[in-house]
């Protein structure tokens, strides 16, 4: 817990420093180019920039802990409200991507290890190698070209077609869930046709990582003595692998999946740009290009907090799942 708090503090310190060293003058952004010297001074003091850095830092921590990231210059809204608005889109995308990655990557890794050197193992190796070497944004573009431009199988950029925009009442902010709650099948189909391509893309990268890790964990377990015990009992190979070996790798696998989910939250930056996905990644990038630092730093902190929360969650799950940790 203490290390998590320290990590959080470090995160805030880094964002604070970035916010202070950047060459963009935050006061000018507020008062505009034509402000008089007096106006400038007043704003300078109102923003607390005349106080010592340490005091400013503690003020900053207080602000962040109360969810006050300042006001976005480009949208005119409070950053926290903006983020509340865009975060569900990213969450929905990353969750579906992780689901795809886990549901394919885990079995692939297990089978690759069980039939080491076999065809599935070779396929898994190539799939992972390509995944580790492919620029995600480029693959996204090519996917759009093929599946949207040429084949027309999926919806184009964005989360929804224009006619469905704002038609489904927002409950969770996750459109797939909201449209199900509303019982609106047409909206669900539309949202699904939009999300499936970017989610598959993220899912592919997640599966490349998850399948490699699964395979390597699995190989380690399959060499263990208790596996011989299970075979001596007369268990079928399926039971040996799934009931015995897999139960043992499921514990470290939880951490891997949490890590991969975190990296999808982050990795969605480029994907969101490609697919015009109105999520956190796109928000951060757009703000960044507009020099809107409070929005960028707010977004960075939210992603960082998600990382820390995921670490905490996987630690807790580890403790629940592993009988040896009690």
């Amino acid at each position: 817990m203490l290390s998590l708090a320290l990590t959080l503090l470090g995160l805030l310190l880094v964002t604070f420093i970035i916010g202070r060293v950047m060459p963009i003058d935050p006061v000018l952004k507020v008062v505009g180019d034509r402000a008089s010297q007096a106006q400038y001074e007043a704003a300078y003091q109102a923003m607390g920039l005349d106080k010592p850095l340490v005091v400013q830092f503690f003020g900053y921590i207080g602000d962040v802990l109360t969810g006050n990231f300042g006001r976005s210059i480009s949208t005119g809204q409070l950053v926290i409200d903006d983020i509340r608005h865009v975060f569900p889109a990213t969450l929905e995308l990353a969750t579906l991507g992780t689901l795809i990655g886990v549901s394919i990557g885990v079995p692939l890794g297990v089978i690759a290890a069980a039939r080491r050197g076999g065809i599935i193992d070779q396929v898994a190796r190539v799939v992972a190698l390509v995944g580790y070497s492919m620029p995600i944004f480029w693959l996204g573009l090519m996917g759009l070209l093929v599946f949207y431009g040429i084949l027309g199988w999926v919806g184009g950029p964005g989360r929804q077609g224009i006619i469905f925009d704002g038609m489904v009442p927002s409950v969770t902010g996750l459109i797939l869930v909201d449209s199900l709650i509303a019982g609106d099948w047409a909206a669900f189909r539309d949202a699904f046709s939009h999300i499936i391509l970017p989610a598959s893309l993220l899912g592919y990268f997640s599966l490349a990582y998850i399948s490699r890790m699964t395979r390597s964990f699995m190989l380690e377990q399959l060499g263990a003595e208790y596996i011989t015990t299970a075979r001596v009992k007369g268990l079928s190979e399926g039971a040996v692998i799934w009931r015995h070996a897999f139960r043992n790798i499921s514990i470290p696998l939880v951490t891997v999946i949490a890590l991969s989910f975190g990296s999808l939250l982050e990795g969605s930056v480029l994907t969101e740009i490609i697919f015009s996905w109105p999520g956190l990644g796109q928000y951060i990038t757009k703000s960044l290009l507009a020099g809107d630092m409070s929005a960028v730093l707010g977004g960075t902190i939210v992603v960082g907090v998600c990382f820390i929360a995921l670490n905490l969650l996987s630690d807790l799950l580890y403790r629940v799942l592993d009988p040896r940790s009690k």
Binding site: P23, L270, T300, N311
Partner: peptide, 18 residues
């Protein structure tokens, strides 16, 4: 602390600042 950071976003923030 650096390991716990989202790498790409941190790099983005750095470049934005510099």
């Amino acid at each position: 602390i650096f390991l716990a950071f989202p790498k790409l976003i941190l790099a983005l923030a750095f470049v934005a600042a510099l």
